[in-house]
Design a protein around this nucleic acid. Structure first.
Length: 213
DNA sequence: GACCAGGTCCTTG
DNA sequence: CAAGGACATGGT
C-alpha cells in the first residue's frame, strides 16, 4: 500500500463526485442468508443471472444456510446452473453453509462475532476470497468492510490510481467515515458508474478520467 | 461465433 | 509474487 496523501485525495475525490452524481441510494437489502448466497453466485457473473438463480432457490425452499447444508448437491446445481460454474458454486455454497452451521450454529449467532474474526474465518472457507468475504461482511452483517471488485479497480485505473487489492481497501476505508451505509452506498455508486460510464468501450470518455490531471 | 461477466483456486516460472 | 488456465452459462 502506498499511503501517499495525493493518492488518498484522489480516492476522496472519486467518492465525493460519485456522491454528488448519485446521492443517497440503498443497495442490496436482503436477508443475510440471501446476501451470502448471492455473494458467491455473482462471482464472475452478471447480477441478472444471479437473480434468476435466487428465485429458483427460493421456489425450492433452498434459500437458507440450513436448507443448503441439508440439500442434495444436484438440487442446488439445478437451481444455480444459470449462473455458470454451477458445480464449483454448489460446492462453495455448501462449504459456506457447513461453516455457518458447524462453526457458529446459525447466521444469527455469527453476527455476534467481531469483524476481524469473521473476516479471517470467512477467508478460510474454500471458495470465499477477499471480495466475497467483504461483500458478506458489508451487506449481510453491516460491517465497515469495503468491497474491491472489478468495477472498483477499473474505475480507479481510470482515475490513475493503481494499487494492490489491500491498498485499495485501506484507501477507501481511510477515506470513508466508519458508517456501514456509506460503505455500501459508495460501492453501489462505483458499480453504477462503472457499468454505465466506464465500460471497456466508453472508458476513453469517462469523466472520472479527468481526475488524472 | 467471438468475447465478456461484481472471482477463486491451483499450477508454473 | 505474476501469469495462465480451469470452472460454465447467458447475453451482445
Amino acid at each position: 500500500m502506498s499511503g501517499s496523501s495525493s493518492t488518498r485525495d484522489r480516492v476522496r475525490l472519486i467518492v465525493d463526485r460519485l456522491e454528488d452524481r448519485y446521492g443517497t441510494i440503498d443497495w442490496w437489502h436482503a436477508p443475510p442468508d440471501e446476501v451470502m448466497v448471492g455473494a458467491i453466485l455473482t462471482q464472475q457473473t452478471r447480477w441478472e443471472n444471479v437473480e434468476r438463480a435466487l428465485d429458483r432457490l427460493r421456489a425450492g425452499d433452498l434459500l437458507s444456510m440450513a436448507a443448503i447444508e441439508a440439500a442434495p448437491a444436484d438440487l442446488i446445481e439445478e437451481a444455480v446452473r444459470c449462473t455458470g460454474f454451477f458445480r464449483v458454486k454448489t460446492c462453495r455454497l455448501q462449504a459456506l453453509a457447513r461453516f455457518v452451521i458447524d462453526e457458529h450454529g446459525s447466521v444469527e449467532a455469527m453476527a455476534a462475532a467481531g469483524t476481524d474474526e469473521l473476516r479471517r474465518d470467512l477467508l478460510g472457507v474454500p471458495g470465499i476470497g477477499e471480495e466475497t468475504a467483504d461483500s458478506i461482511l458489508c451487506y449481510a452483517f453491516s460491517r465497515c468492510s469495503f468491497v474491491i471488485d472489478a468495477y472498483t479497480r477499473r474505475l480507479c485505473a481510470c482515475a490513475g490510481v493503481d494499487e494492490p487489492v489491500e491498498g485499495y481497501r485501506h484507501l477507501f476505508e481511510s477515506v470513508l467515515p466508519p458508517v456501514n451505509v456509506r460503505y455500501r452506498q459508495t460501492h453501489a455508486h462505483i458499480v453504477e458508474y462503472a457499468k454505465s460510464q466506464c465500460s471497456r468501450k466508453r472508458c476513453e470518455e469517462c469523466s472520472i478520467r479527468s481526475l488524472n490531471a
